[in-house]
């Protein structure tokens, strides 16, 4: 009887234990891994893929509980990654190569943008038609990585210009509009359209795309500390795949993607113009899709890597070119 009682107790205990185990396992089968990502800037269509993947539950599908930390002018995403305040960071290829060359062990796990959207804009009324015409002019440059291509450009065309530090706030276009600048640096998907929507017509402007001048530096990529990658490459690649799925969703659903992006913008009280965000999304799609459609989204092509790294070396911004294999960890099949 006692034995029986004991065995009954054991049975009941086992059942309860199994029950709880089931609850725990059933509730969070393989529990979501919490990670954080910091893009270079505040929410906008430039990062639509991330926000859409987050909003549509794509990250969850890949077992990721993602937090997106807004970037900004005064917060460097690479620094956040370096200091492990963020797990993943978005930054430009040129920046990342420099950081790697300087000894920061970060790796590229996806090269989101395939073609440089950086450009110079001048008013036709300034009379600047060719790169040579920029000699002696006031050129607005953003600080930091944004200067790499312009400086290489100046070097290539042997230009002496007066550099005006260009604020990161979009109201800097006011400097250009008010003729405090002759040449403005701009992103095709952003400032160019802001200028158009400040009343200048495209035919009143001359544009100089860096990719047209042998300076195609693909921009946004996803970076992670090498040690983080080594620890859990599966997680890193899951993040990349989810993000690319987010972008693919954007390609098909422009307006829904805009709704999602604008929702996140409004949460942060960021002025959101739908037509501007639409322009930005459409341009992003243009520069994210590889020209060679057989190349998967997010691939860093060796020739792009070489071009950027060699230009940096020639500009003496780096001493040695880090090896492509060390730098790039391919997640996309």
């Amino acid at each position: 009887m006692r034995e029986r009682t004991r065995s009954s107790v054991a049975l009941v205990g086992t059942v309860i234990l199994i029950f709880f185990l089931l609850i725990i396992l059933g509730g969070g089968q393989s529990p979501l891994k919490k990670i954080s990502f910091m893009p270079q800037w505040f929410p906008q269509a430039e990062f639509a893929g991330y926000y859409v993947a987050l909003d549509k539950g794509i990250y969850k599908k890949y077992g990721i509980d993602l937090t997106i930390m807004p970037g900004g002018a005064e917060r460097s995403s690479v620094d956040y990654v370096a200091s492990k305040k963020a797990d993943f960071g978005g930054t430009w290829l040129s920046t990342a190569i420099q950081k790697r060359a300087q000894g920061l062990k970060i790796v590229n796990i996806a090269q989101v943008i395939q073609r440089s959207a950086l450009m110079f804009i001048v008013k036709k009324s300034s009379g600047i038609e060719t790169p040579q015409d920029m000699n002696g002019k006031k050129v607005g440059l953003w600080r930091g990585d944004f200067q790499l291509q312009p400086q290489a450009f100046f070097k290539k065309y042997n230009l002496k210009v007066k550099v005006i530090p260009q604020p990161f706030s979009t109201d800097y276009i006011d400097l250009f509009l008010m003729d405090a600048l002759d040449v403005a640096t701009a992103m095709w998907y952003n400032e160019y359209h802001l200028i158009i929507n400040s009343g200048l017509n495209p035919d009143e402007l001359n544009t100089f795309f860096f990719h047209d001048y042998g300076l195609n530096f693909p921009e946004n990529g996803i970076y992670v500390l090498e040690e983080t990658y080594r620890k859990d490459p599966e997680l890193c690649c899951a993040f990349v795949r989810a993000t690319m799925e987010g972008w693919e969703y954007c390609f098909e659903h422009h307006e829904e993607a805009l709704d999602i992006v604008i929702k996140y913008m409004k949460e942060l009280y960021i002025p959101a113009s739908r037509v501007h965000q639409r322009w930005m999304l459409e341009r992003m799609i243009d520069i994210i899709q590889p020209l060679d459609r057989s190349v998967p989204l997010g691939t860093l092509l060796p020739e792009d890597y070489e071009r950027v790294a060699q230009t940096l070396k020639e500009s003496r911004l780096i001493k040695e070119v880090p090896s492509y294999e060390e730098f790039y960890k391919k997640c996309q099949r």
């Binding site: 600080r143 530090p165 109201d171």
Partner: peptide
């Protein structure tokens, strides 16, 4: 906050005259 890179600072400096900046929230 590198204020000397901001427009409210740059505009009068570059234009050498008092200037109204674009309204902002």
């Amino acid at each position: 906050y590198h204020y000397f890179y901001w427009t409210w600072y740059q505009l009068p400096k570059e234009l050498n005259r008092p200037v109204w900046n674009e309204p902002y929230y």
